[in-house]
Write a protein that binds this DNA or RNA. Structure first.
Length: 985
RNA sequence: GCCUUGGUGGCGGAAUUGGUAGACGCGCUGGAUUCAAAAUCCAGUUCUUUCGGGAGUGUGGGUUCGAUUCCCACCCAAGGUACCA
């Protein structure tokens, strides 16, 4: 009987679903194992072949752990809030919930086809009210918490109030806003309730603040840095400006140090840890205050090199800095204002990316050096970002290349404060060899000593303090979108109030339009029923807002990462309506043992979720402050885009139109391959012209046109154009006929194809690059088991690799060979030593491979195993039974079928993994490679129990040795028993 | 610029503590089977060669009896990231 994968795969997928084979119990005697894949955003394009790569790896590991006797939790769900569904809604009016539902349905079908061992009973969708109820709950917990730097953890806001009542806030060490005023206990006591709330808001872990955003007036929305190209919106090309906006923020900076420290105890890829470390960007230095000449204002700067303070020759402020308008002298006003305006038009990313140009404007104002009391000119420059540090820099041109370039450009003095260093060409930034000079009390000190001394001195004169600064900023948590979690917040007199847990979830209201309102409010501003009645505790019509018992609700929604920051914990108890999860389930599952996903989430999801987990830990909800012990980044599957070369050629002809002879030039499209064609012979030109005549006949209905002669041609231009990979075969040839019939090829109907050869380039797989490959067609042609094996066979999991289906026939025929091996199984056959050796070396290798996430090499091992057993004509059940279990994590459908045919009535999923036994691999002899000067020349079979000296004698006596030496006597002979012999001479 | 990862046949890749470079698969070549094709099976396939051999893992050095593996310098590619003070 042939290997009928279609029948087999459908049969077992049905069996697993019906029998709930992969249902995880929250209560088991077995050790737990939690394997997690990052859940997908269900896009309209469906699953492409890159998605399953990580899922297959997690699935193999899960199935392996099940064979090893673990109670495995392997869930899947959908990160189903997001922009594409909303944009589709804006275009078509279709509710995002419907689009999302349809997309999920398609994802589910595709996932089911691949035979994953998910426990679907635990599925979560971030856009389900039953799920986002708990996202809203966490938001409220954050609102009700502050960060106590003394206990180094988040605490309930009530403990802060107690402190304020007792001693005011002067001594309270907490993460809070920079502009928090100092007050005493007495003052706190007489603050109004509103004033108290305003103060507390400066301490809460989620708080309202004015944040600078990229505002696009035309789209009425805020854009991310990567949605802006060259200062205009990517969509539509509208202008974008920097604007301040009141938004919810998350005080993630309170956790900066702990997020950094936590990296040491988790087994995550080093590159990922590096990017989080860089993102958090810890730097040690000092905060220094400069007085502004002729005013009471001060400028605070953060510097990592306070030791170079005597080298300061100017200061630079970010153009957005609050002091700019105050400092600027009338004479400089026009220039400064023009510069500030020009800067507002540039995106932050743009400003940061431009390293080449030096630009800035002198404000006319001066600061005072804290020690020398010398005046220091204050400049503004767009290389200083308002959002980093204090938005101001003390510029030390001799010690910082950027400041050096700025000083050179604007002819500002460059005082040298380093001993024995030439700074005529470039700045000197080497801390190791620094010796300070021309610096008063710092003279002669090394970097380290000078740092210590200067901080003491700064503190003494009250002009600075040693400080650790983080690049990490608080995370903006508001989005002016429709399709996201609503905030459980209403406003009383402008102050935010939380809705009680018992009234959650606060569900998204219906709106007519998904666009921002005409007054520039977020889409929820379109809702007519979006007010909170504090007596009935329900959402009511906006008409009822009286600011007494009925209040307006928050109009922003939460960002994409809100729903994904605790989903891994929700999977443990996904249907619990009383709590985000019960204490028993979190105590049982604890944390994720293995998390697989893409590295593109390094500084987004993977940082925010660690932050929330630490918060949840502080508040006693979870037992671990890091949620994923081990994480693996699967590499990206790149696509192979196909291109053809389009030339536009003007062909000069003589034609007869309505019996009149006239000259006419046709613009013809010619498709060629990579090497551009510059010469055409007469036949080709005629063909081109005929093609064009056809076109003219069809378009102009001018029936009386006839080609008389061709006078010549000019090549106009050529251009590479993408063609969808679906029309290109494995030899890179374009199916011209199919192409020109498709919507993509319409305009080439009358083109002349000189060549159908395409050239290919490897790029990220993306819909816009026409290089996306869906798994469906491959599943249909070769089956899920083939696809699973092939995706693993492509190469190491963590490396990115191009998708190329050319090799899939290899794994498919392996499965056929495997099937054949089981066609005549006999129960009583005694396994031969060769059979056992093949089996056990396979067990050993496969087990090691899975533990090391080296799935590609396992597939090769299976191929070798089946090739050997076939050659050995092995039919014994004692060999084939364990082999089926070995294969089952990789190719579960065929394994189940073979298992059943071997006479089992229960699923193979729980069968114990075969035990490796060394004794079957013991050898008595070894084929030694005999090398001369490190190059292997011939092989010699010798017993393994032979001693070093005996081996040397045997090798030297061999005729081939003599041949190699040609009479020379060896200088040295290296014998490593069991390994190698190397003769030097 | 910086950080990270990688560079091995025509292609994907293997080589587990420094010990036989190119496993396994694709492709290609030849053969068997077939009226023919598909499928299947067998043999070969790094380059070069005077058929003895010689060279060879991005380049150039180094350590070593021995280097794809370790060290130094450089080149190239992909991804990330930044006037980070």
């Amino acid at each position: 009987m042939d290997y009928n994968f279609r029948e087999i795969e459908a049969k077992w997928q049905k069996y697993w679903a019906k029998n709930k084979t992969f249902k995880a119990s929250n209560d088991s005697d077995k050790p737990k194992f939690y394997a997690l894949s990052m859940f997908p955003y269900p896009s309209g394009a469906g699953l492409h072949v890159g998605h399953p790569l990580g899922y297959i790896a997690t699935d193999i590991y899960s199935r392996y752990k099940r064979h090893k006797g673990f109670n495995v939790l392997h869930p899947m769900g959908y990160d189903s809030f997001g922009l594409p569904a909303e944009q589709y809604a804006i275009q078509t009016g279709q509710h995002p919930a419907i689009t999302t539902e349809n997309n999920i349905k398609r994802y589910r079908e595709q996932l089911d086809e691949l035979g994953f061992s998910f426990d679907w009973d635990r599925e979560v969708r971030t856009s389900n009210p039953g799920y986002y109820k708990w996202t809203q709950w966490i938001f409220i917990q954050l609102f009700n918490s502050w960060y106590n730097k003394v206990s180094d953890k988040a605490e309930d806001i009530s403990t802060l109030v107690v402190l304020f009542e007792k001693e005011g806030n002067a001594k309270v060490e907490a993460a809070c806003d920079e502009d928090t005023p100092v007050f005493s206990a007495e003052e706190w006591d007489i603050f109004s309730e509103r004033e108290k709330q305003e103060i507390l808001l400066k301490y809460r872990l989620t708080y309202l603040a004015d944040t600078e955003v990229n505002w696009c007036p035309a789209l009425g929305t805020v854009l991310a840095n990567d949605e802006i190209v060259n200062g205009v919106s990517e969509r539509g090309g509208h202008p974008v400006i920097r604007k301040k906006m009141t938004q919810w923020s998350m005080r993630i900076t309170a956790y900066a140090q702990r997020l950094l420290d936590g990296l040491n105890k988790i087994d995550w890829p080093q590159p990922l840890k590096d990017s989080q470390t860089n993102w958090i960007g810890r730097s040690v230095g000092a905060s220094v205050t400069f007085d502004v000449k002729g005013s009471d204002d001060t400028i605070e700067v953060f510097t990592t090199r306070p030791d170079t303070i005597f080298g300061v020759s100017f200061m630079t402020l970010a153009p957005e800095h609050d002091l700019v308008t105050k400092i600027t002298t009338p004479g400089q006003k026009a220039e400064v204002e023009a510069y500030v305006e020009a800067t507002a038009k540039r995106s932050e990313r743009d400003r940061m990316a431009d390293v080449k140009t030096v630009s800035g404007v002198f404000t006319g104002g001066y600061a005072e050096h804290p020690f020398t009391k010398e005046p220091i000119p204050i400049w503004i420059g767009d290389y200083v970002l308002a959002s980093y540090g204090t938005g101001a820099v003390m510029a030390v041109p001799c010690g910082d290349q950027r400041d050096y370039d700025f000083a050179k450009h604007y002819d500002i003095p460059i005082p040298n404060i380093f001993e024995g260093v030439d700074i005529s060409e470039e700045a000197f930034a080497d801390k190791e060899t620094t010796v300070i000079a021309n610096s008063d009390f710092l003279n002669g000190l090394s970097y380290k000593d000078a740092m210590k001394k200067i901080i003491t001195e700064l503190e003494k004169i009250g002009h600075g303090v040693g400080k650790v600064n983080y690049r990490l900023r608080d995370a903006v948590f508001s989005r002016q979108r429709y399709w996201g979690e609503p905030f459980p917040v209403y406003y009383v007199d402008g102050m935010p109030q939380m809705i009680d847990l018992e009234h959650l979830p606060l569900e998204l209201p219906e709106v007519e339009k998904y666009l921002p309102t005409e007054t520039g409010e977020p889409p929820l501003g379109n809702a007519t029923v979006w007010a909170w009645d504090t007596e009935k505790n329900e959402v009511v019509n906006n008409d009822l807002i009286d600011h007494k018992t009925v209040f307006p609700l928050e109009l922003n929604t939460m960002p994409g990462w809100a729903g994904s920051s605790q989903y891994f914990n929700r999977y443990m108890d996904p249907r619990n309506d009383e709590a985000i999860f019960s204490k028993e389930t979190i105590d049982y599952w604890q944390d994720v043992d293995l998390y697989i996903g893409g590295s593109e989430h390094a500084t987004g999801h993977l940082l925010y979720s660690r932050f929330w987990q630490k918060f949840m830990f502080d508040r006693g909800y979870v037992p671990k402050d890091e949620y994923a012990q081990k994480l693996i980044n699967q590499g990206m599957i790149t696509g192979t885009s196909a291109f053809i070369l389009r030339q536009i050629v003007d062909v000069r002809t003589v034609v007869e139109i309505d019996s009149k002879i006239e000259e006419r030039t046709f613009q013809a499209i010619i498709i060629s391959d990579e090497g551009s064609v510059s010469k055409y012979d007469k036949d080709e030109l005629e063909k081109i012209a005929e093609n064009q005549l056809d076109k003219i006949l069809s378009e102009e209905e001018n029936k009386n046109i006839k080609l008389i002669d061709i006078e010549g041609y000019d090549i106009n231009m050529h251009l590479s154009i993408r063609v969808p990979v679906d029309f290109v075969n494995s030899s890179d040839e374009l199916d011209v006929e199919a192409f020109i019939k498709s919507p993509f090829g319409k305009e080439y109907k009358h083109a002349l194809f000189v060549s159908n050869k395409t050239y290919r380039e490897i790029e990220k797989m993306s819909k816009s690059k026409y290089n996306v490959v869906n798994p469906d067609a491959i599943c249909e042609e070769y089956g899920a088991d083939s696809l699973r094996l092939y995706e693993m066979f492509l190469g190491p999991l963590e490396q990115s690799k191009p998708w190329n289906t050319a090799g899939i026939t290899g794994v498919h025929s392996f499965l056929k060979k495997l099937w054949k091996l089981y066609s005549s199984v006999e129960g009583g056959v005694e396994p031969t030593p060769e059979n056992l050796k093949t089996l056990h070396k396979t067990i050993k290798k496969v087990e090691e491979d899975i533990e090391n996430f080296s799935f590609n090499t396992s597939v090769s091992t299976f191929m070798i195993c089946v090739n050997e057993l076939t050659a050995q004509k092995c039919t014994g059940k004692a060999i084939l039974e364990p082999l089926a279990i070995l294969v089952s994590p990789y190719a579960p459908h065929i394994a189940e079928e073979l298992w059943e045919r071997l006479g089992h009535t229960k699923s193979i999923a729980e069968a114990p993994f075969p035990k490796f036994e060394e004794k079957y691999l013991v050898e008595s002899s070894k084929e030694y490679p005999i090398s001369f000067n490190g190059k292997m020349r011939f092989k010699l079979e010798l017993p393994l129990d032979m001693g070093k000296d005996e081996i040397e004698a045997a090798v030297l006596a061999h005729e081939k040795t003599q041949e190699q030496l040609q009479g020379r006597s060896p200088k040295k002979v290296i014998v490593v028993p069991g390994k190698i012999v190397n003769i030097v001479g």
